[in-house]
């Protein structure tokens, strides 16, 4: 009596699988193409390089995945990463003892406050996420420039560069941190009630509220989480430069949003996955690396990212119009 229903279920699951694999197949094709055309691509040095370079933006994108599934986004993540870099590095330089721990704690505290402010504006005051996070992005970046006079400050103890440049068993430590955060947040998003509610609020906030879900609390938490991820990225940046970098994280927000969308999430909310985001990050990363290896100017990279984003959204539209 349920065969028709089961078949329908099976075919829609199959479609879902193809859709999910679709984007992974694009990444696979890119990697195969690069391996076939550039010997240099497959070298350990280059692969480690790709993994390391994309780890930081990858961490930012993990947080962004939650914000986009929620039906919003966070434009302030780049500025928040820079805030972590500046606050953390300055504490590490100035504080005498326990300076790494204090620096990390200070950076987290500063960034989580910004995240809480975003969350408060969006969840409780009902400011549009675009306006709220554009505002905090501008304010935070401005305050950083005022405080630092827009100049980097060097002098973080070099032992901290282990975090940004070190390797364990040949794997860059930022990549390990990225994998750890991606696994943890992937679990939270797809296995726990909190993640389930992020999808529910993103899909239909009114219904979620009618069903007794505390929509404001979910929204607030997601923006704090996005800021936490940006803070982790900024702290790893300290580990790569041993300095406070007011210009750090410029454009992170757009790259992260692009990666999440390429990974199959919808800007309308309610759809997306952590796995998709990771694939999205590496599609952008491999294209960028490929352009490099082919000797194309770095200035072309945003052009490529933009076109990939438009193509991803365009293809998504196409598949939706069919239904």
């Amino acid at each position: 009596m349920t065969t028709a229903a089961d078949q329908q279920s099976r075919s829609s699951l199959l479609a879902e699988l193809v859709r999910r694999l679709g984007i992974s197949l694009v990444l696979l094709a890119l990697v195969v193409f690069m391996l076939a055309t550039k010997d240099q691509f497959g070298t350990y040095a280059n692969i480690a390089n790709v993994l390391q370079q994309n780890a930081i933006i990858g961490i930012v994108a993990c947080g962004m995945t939650f914000a986009i599934i929620l039906g919003g986004f966070d434009l302030s993540v780049g500025a928040v990463a820079a805030l972590a870099s500046v606050v953390g590095a300055n504490i590490m330089i100035d504080a005498a003892a326990f300076n790494f721990t204090l620096g990390i704690a200070g950076a987290l505290l500063a960034c989580l406050s910004i995240g809480a402010f975003n969350g408060f504006l969006i969840a409780y005051v009902r400011v549009n996420p675009f306006v709220a996070t554009l505002g905090t992005m501008t304010v935070v970046r401005g305050l950083i420039f005022v405080y630092t006079n827009a100049t980097p400050r060097f002098g973080v103890d070099y032992s901290f560069t282990t975090i940004g440049l070190g390797k364990i068993l040949g794997v860059p430590i930022p990549t390990i941190i990225f994998v750890g955060i991606a696994l943890l947040l992937g679990f939270v998003l797809h296995r726990t009630r909190f993640g389930h509610y992020v999808f529910a609020v993103g899909g239909n906030a009114k219904t979620a509220s009618e069903m007794g879900i505390d929509v404001r609390r979910i929204r607030f938490s997601v923006y704090v989480l996005a800021a936490f991820c940006a803070a982790c990225a900024g702290i790893i940046l300290i580990g790569q430069t041993a300095s406070a970098q007011p210009q750090a994280g410029l454009g992170y927000e757009l790259t992260a949003i692009a990666a999440v969308i390429v990974g199959g999430a919808s800007l309308g909310g309610g759809r997306g996955s952590m796995g998709g985001t990771i694939v999205g990050i590496f599609i952008l990363g491999v294209v960028s690396n490929g352009l490099n290896l082919f000797g194309v100017s770095a200035f072309w990279q945003p052009v490529a990212t933009g076109f990939i984003l438009i193509a991803a959204v365009g293809l998504d539209r196409g598949s939706h119009n069919k239904g």
Partner: peptide
């Protein structure tokens, strides 16, 4: 009061 992006079971238990 259904959430279209979510599955049948997720809606029943929302």
């Amino acid at each position: 009061s259904l959430t279209g992006n979510m599955t049948v079971w997720a809606n029943v238990y929302l």
